[in-house]
Amino acid sequence: MSNILEIKNLSVSFASDGIKERAIAVNGVDIDIPQGRTVGLVGESGCGKSVTSLAVMGLLADNGRVEGGEAMFGGQDLLKLPDRELRRIRGNRISMIFQEPMTSLNPVITAGKQVAEALRLHAGLDAAAAKARTIEIFEKVGIPEPERRFGCYPHQLSGGLRQRVMIGMAMVMKPDLLIADEPTTALDVSIEAQILRLMRDLQRESGTSILMITHNLGVVAELCDEVYVMYAGEVVERADVMTLFSQCAHPYTRGLMASLPRMTPKGRRLYNIQGTVPNLRAMPAGCRFSPRCEFARERCKTEKPPLVDVGNGHLCRCFEPRTTPIAWGGDGL
């Protein structure tokens, strides 16, 4: 199966005021997104998921810089493409949805216009045709009374409706790839379920590949075919979704699994990985997870483990990958 996007060895750094050394936020990340599939990118907040996707889209903040790597899309390296050509891909062949539906839409422009804008830009439609197409897509993403909603300002819409507008905006050009950065994190659980169902339906219909960024393993289970787990700016595990949930091998992934709320014979329990994500400027030598890892050995603290295949394309960055199946409902990791 061919890949729609291949990110190879991507590194991104940020400058900060008063400090000469740049902070490395993403360090040698490889991610392949197969045609028509949904790939999850998970990890705690701050581990570099958003930065990875923004770098691919050329949307890094002013102080950010791609240090190396490539992002092959349709035979072109997005990271080397001049801005002019990248703009023809953005919003057209690759589009994005962001976490905050409250702030991701322009407050002084009507919802309809913000969607129609993409149609006018990429499909060259005139105002009337773009409006008609926008109302169609509003209907498709489940916005009731689409004609009226076309003229609504974002503050007149609920969070769920705004995210539907964002999805409409992202899907209106039938992109080859949709990057969804925590699209449901800010929404209620019931709205989240609706939005996820909508994304799945749209994908089935249009064949769009999705990169689903989330820190919610429930969303991964719901939607994804394959999963990449990031920790401190690096990929630490990659597996198909079945393998991940049945026998993930990295202690970090196991910790994430264990911290899912679930029912056990002893009642409801929550596990937390000890400690926090390390500071970008104070990365531990050796394995970056070692200070928080309950299985860490001396070697882990000095030597950096490579990302190795532990079977059938299941990759894991650990000297001693776990091999026991995960005991769902039990106590063990």
């Binding site: 023809r88 891909i89 953005r90 919003g91 962001f98 702030t103 991701s104 839409l105 804008e117």
Partner: peptide, 14 residues
Amino acid sequence: RNDYIRTARSKGLS
């Protein structure tokens, strides 16, 4: 600095 500016850029606007 607002999020909606990033959204506008992600649409491919110059």
